[in-house]
């Protein structure tokens, strides 16, 4: 039995919340993506049940919740990566600037160009650093000097340029894990997506590399809409503007329990389930 009271445990996040520039929550912003009555099935198993939430533009939205509650699955419905797995089905709508990305006429390739992704484990291609970043722009037909500029700018924006500018022709796999992940961020922003999805981007990184990725997210926020899935609640408290808490319903399907400004979710949650999870009384 833990001696601390829930209210005291909440103070664990005080410092993290203080470090988080919160002014973004009060100023109003557009809704970039709208998830409406979303259900996702693996075969007959419903992994996500009736999720409805709004993702604000130029903000960082964190999705937290216990393992297996469907956080990553939900994230992957936002750029239609979920459907790559066989026997899956998506129901409901996901609006990107008011357009349903699951619409029959929607080109999935275009959706993924607008909604980029960074994965849990760094996954650079076994190609030179330059070619890794240049991959997306090249698909769009960018060549020559323009391409070099985009690569440099992307690497700068990903806070990696100074570390790699002298070895752009070495393999991306020769970098450290943290550098590889920033390379993956550079690769993702090289095609100027509107939204960046991050699926536990720091899960395979040490604290220093994690810190750098978090810094990066805060600087990217002004230009991109970021959605991050994280297991690390300190991280959610440090960087995100809004937090979505997911949990499993009795049928083991993921449901959205509560969505709100990060500070409110961490200090004054409205649902007892959220408070239980945040104070560690979960399960």
């Amino acid at each position: 039995m833990l001696a601390t009271k829930p209210s005291e445990r909440l103070s664990m996040f005080t410092r993290a919340l203080e470090n988080n520039p919160q002014e973004n929550v009060t100023t109003t912003t557009n809704i970039k993506m709208r998830v409406q009555n979303l259900n996702f099935y693996y075969g007959t198993f419903r992994a996500i049940a009736d999720v409805t939430m709004d993702i604000p533009e130029n903000r960082i939205t964190a999705i937290i919740g216990s393992s297996g509650c469907g956080k990553s699955t939900l994230l992957r419905t936002l750029n239609r990566m979920g459907e790559l797995v066989a026997h899956t089905r998506t129901q409901g709508t996901v609006l990107l600037d008011g357009e349903n990305i699951y619409d029959r006429n929607m080109d999935v390739v275009l959706v993924r160009r607008r909604v980029g992704m960074v994965f849990q484990r760094p996954n650079p291609f076994p190609k030179p650093i330059f070619d890794n970043v240049a991959y997306g722009p090249r698909l769009l037909g960018v060549r020559g000097q323009e391409l070099e500029q985009i690569v440099e700018q992307s690497l700068r924006d990903a806070a990696l340029w100074d570390e790699v500018k002298d070895k752009l022709h070495e393999s991306g796999l020769a970098l450290s894990g943290g550098q590889q992940q920033r390379l993956c961020v550079a690769r993702a922003i090289a095609i100027k997506p509107e939204v960046i999805l991050m699926d536990e981007p720091c899960a395979a990184l040490d604290p220093i590399a994690t810190y750098k990725i978090e810094e990066l997210m805060l600087t990217l926020r002004s230009a991109y809409t970021i959605v991050i899935v994280t297991h690390n609640m300190q991280q959610a408290a440090r960087v995100s503007d809004f937090t979505a808490f997911m949990n499993m319903n009795p049928q083991r399907a993921g449901v959205l329990v509560e969505f709100g400004p990060t500070k409110q979710i961490f200090t004054n949650p409205t649902k007892p389930e959220t408070e239980d999870y945040i104070t560690g009384r979960f399960g």
Partner: peptide, 18 residues
């Protein structure tokens, strides 16, 4: 070949062919 390699390319808006 790891799934992650495919996903990396697809998430950048590559077609299956690419």
């Amino acid at each position: 070949i790891p799934r992650a390699q495919r996903e990396a390319a697809l998430a950048l808006g590559a077609t299956r062919w690419e």
